[in-house]
Design a protein around this nucleic acid. Structure first.
Lengths: 186, 186
DNA sequence: TCTGTTTGCCAACATCTGTTGGCATTCAGT
DNA sequence: ACTGAATGCCAACAGATGTTGGCAAACAGA
């Protein structure tokens, strides 16, 4: 249906998406100009418009993200918090899409909505599987989000020195118990 | 020296600062235009330039913030975390300057630097007074910042529903123990 | 080989941005 | 009352931004 035979322009489309993610992640929504993205992708700005329609739609196309959470029921419950902290920090480091969402989400409603749906649709259900009362799952998932996003904000975006210079292990050691409590404690 | 007799334009200057804080808080640095700020202050855009020199300097002038932390040595140590959570949440609610810093800090280096200095110079020293080893104070202050900023981000900026709808008491109940641990625990 | 579509670039548009200079009015000191 | 400074607005600038339309070259199907 939607996927025909591969087009000759697929490489260009992909290059645009890559450049867009990079620019949105580094500069936020408004500072990431179509001209700069096009330059990074080594094509003309008008191509971006032809293939993605508008800056808004380009962002929507570039900002798909999957946290790739493990199945929480398969996790040893007593150190789920630590494993979750490690997984999320790693996921954060190897995919700049989350930066794009974080930087853009602060000023751009589309990005904020995308962020909300990631934590509601991907994290929420997993939390519901293991937390004491499934009705509390949204709140617990929200708290986990707050600590995870807060650390990412301080570490990667604001670059508060002590948080930015922390090793990943150190960060996991501190966050693990916090997430564990938000997950199953009181 | 710097402060002469009050000028006739002081009201205008103050109106500009107020409008600037409001716009920066609501829209972030780039979307908060000088024209919009001037319109809110009911004066001409050129006045903003005359009194503050540039948009950059206007932001710097508008983004002064004091957390007004209590003296931690005067606090009952066993619920310092809870008191800190309550204080910070309250402070956040009644001064939009922090929003301006948060929204702008994500894309604007001046704002990020200001944010860093707030948490390093205001929070850090207080933490040093009560944490087990003063050498750990920066890291502990950084962790506290991450949780506090993360909650503010989710609650006020991204508006994750479960976090945004939480009562302040509920938020304090969840954050208290976390901050307590970052403050004095392991 | 011919034809229509796809891919790409160029030039331009309308608008918005921070910023500047000039001119009128109002105020303060004498 | 006179003078110089302070205050305010208007008009305009130069540059950047998202976006559009047209035209050339490369391609694919017949």
């Amino acid at each position: 249906m939607t996927s025909d035979r591969p087009r000759r322009s697929d490489a260009t489309r992909a290059a645009i998406l890559d450049a867009a993610r990079e620019r949105f992640a580094a500069d936020g929504y408004e500072r990431a100009t179509i001209r700069a993205i096009a330059a990074d992708a080594a094509i003309d700005p008008s191509m971006v418009m032809r293939y993605y329609g508008s800056k808004e739609k380009l962002f929507a196309a570039a900002a798909h993200f999957d946290l790739r959470l493990p199945d929480f029921t398969q996790l040893p419950l007593e150190d789920a918090g630590t494993l979750l902290a490690r997984h999320v920090l790693a996921r954060w480091s190897d995919d700049e899409t989350l930066f794009a969402l974080l930087r853009a989400g602060v000023t751009h409603e589309t990005a904020a909505e995308r962020m909300r749906s990631i934590f509601a649709d991907q994290l929420g259900p997993q939390v519901a599987k293991v937390c004491p009362d499934p009705a509390e799952a949204p709140v617990r998932a929200g708290l986990i989000s707050s600590q995870v996003l807060g650390l990412a904000l301080c570490r990667f975006v604001l670059r508060l020195p002590p948080v930015a210079e922390m090793t990943e292990d150190e960060a996991v050691r501190w966050l693990g118990p916090t997430l564990q409590r938000y997950l199953v404690g009181y």
